[in-house]
């Protein structure tokens, strides 16, 4: 069945802001197809992004959206999810945003296993600010802050996420949208923290500076750094050096999800006979309530200023 993309997009914000040859549009399309296949109501979906090219996705999707600070999409999304555990909460962002400046939040969201789906558009570069190198820039690749090539090692985001305890980790490629949609769909459906690391070309700020030719050639170049899971199994460690494995790399369905754990804690806490537990259950008795006299309150609050107490506006 054909997907009605317009149902999920703010069409008045078109055309997309991204450069010709950018992979972001492909990822967005795969993502919308995944949501459509899951049959989720857009009214139940919230998306948070930080700052960057990929972070502009929140402007296009017709969900509850927040376009927040650089690097802080994940903690903001944690705030939304904790407050509304029954809603779907997503994060969209680039490598600089999510992994570099937001690395600490990323690690701890993995560890907590909070039910947020992070789609990470990994273009190996800071695109929006003009092609500075990031933590994902391949060693010796050129960037505007690395005119003679980057002297830093790069990071395997998926391995980092698995190490930090994420319960769903996949790597896709903008050049392979069919598989990408499948990974995103499974990541969305997974109950727990899911990361989909998507390799996506930035022809303007990465390809051009590294003389990799037109967007198609850059796509080809990126593809050559990737190997499928099945193929990787048959390769030696030396052969895998410098390659990134695609596919669903890690799934853990047993790890408790954060908002579920909090719900358990709430149930346990509300069993107590403490004030707020009784207040919520409506079981406070007169014995729990203290009726304070004006004189007594004046002893505690002797100032001739307003109080928020309805009865005694002015002491």
């Amino acid at each position: 069945m054909a997907v009605n993309y317009a149902n999920y997009l703010r069409m008045e914000k078109m055309p997309l802001y991204w450069c010709p040859g950018c992979g972001d549009g492909i990822v967005l399309r795969a993502y919308i197809e995944a949501i459509d296949e899951l049959g989720w109501d857009k009214n139940d979906c919230a998306m948070v992004s930080g700052i960057g090219c990929a972070a502009r996705v929140t402007g296009y999707v017709d969900f509850h959206t927040l376009h927040t600070l650089h690097g802080r999409a994940i903690p903001t999304a944690v705030g939304v999810k904790m407050s509304h555990p029954d809603k779907h909460v997503f994060v969209f962002g680039g490598d600089g945003d999510i992994v570099h400046i937001g690395g600490n939040h990323f690690l701890h969201a993995c560890r907590r296993n909070v039910d947020i789906t992070v789609v990470l558009i990994n273009n190996w570069i800071y695109g929006m600010t003009g092609g500075q190198h990031s933590c994902t820039t391949p060693s010796s690749a050129k960037a505007s802050t690395a005119p003679r090539g980057s002297y830093e090692p790069t990071i395997d985001v998926c391995q980092t996420a698995i190490g930090a305890g994420a319960s769903f980790v996949a790597r896709g490629f903008a050049g392979d949208p069919i598989h990408l949609k499948k990974y995103i769909k499974e990541g969305l459906a997974h109950h727990g923290f899911s990361l989909i690391d998507v390799f996506s070309p930035c022809p303007v700020n990465f390809g051009r500076r590294n003389k990799l030719g037109d967007p198609v050639k850059l796509m080809e170049f990126m593809k050559n750094t990737l190997v499928s899971q099945a193929k990787a199994k048959r390769m030696s460690e030396e052969e895998l050096e410098g390659k990134f494995v695609t596919g669903i790399l890690h799934v853990d369905d047993k790890k408790p999800e954060l908002t579920d754990s909090y719900k358990e804690l709430v149930n346990k806490s509300q069993d107590s006979s403490d004030y707020w537990a009784k207040y919520v259950k409506g079981t406070l008795t007169d014995k729990d309530k203290y009726s304070i006299t004006r004189e007594e309150l004046k002893g505690l609050y002797p100032y001739d200023v307003e109080t928020p107490l309805k009865e005694w506006k002015k002491i």
């Binding site: 919230a46 903690p75 999304a77 705030g79 904790m82």
Partner: peptide, 19 residues
């Protein structure tokens, strides 16, 4: 929730409050 740093904690508040 106790978060990983001060930055995360105020950003989570912004997210919760905005929603």
């Amino acid at each position: 929730i106790m978060l990983e740093d001060e930055i995360a904690s105020i950003n989570a508040c912004v997210g919760a409050a905005a929603s």
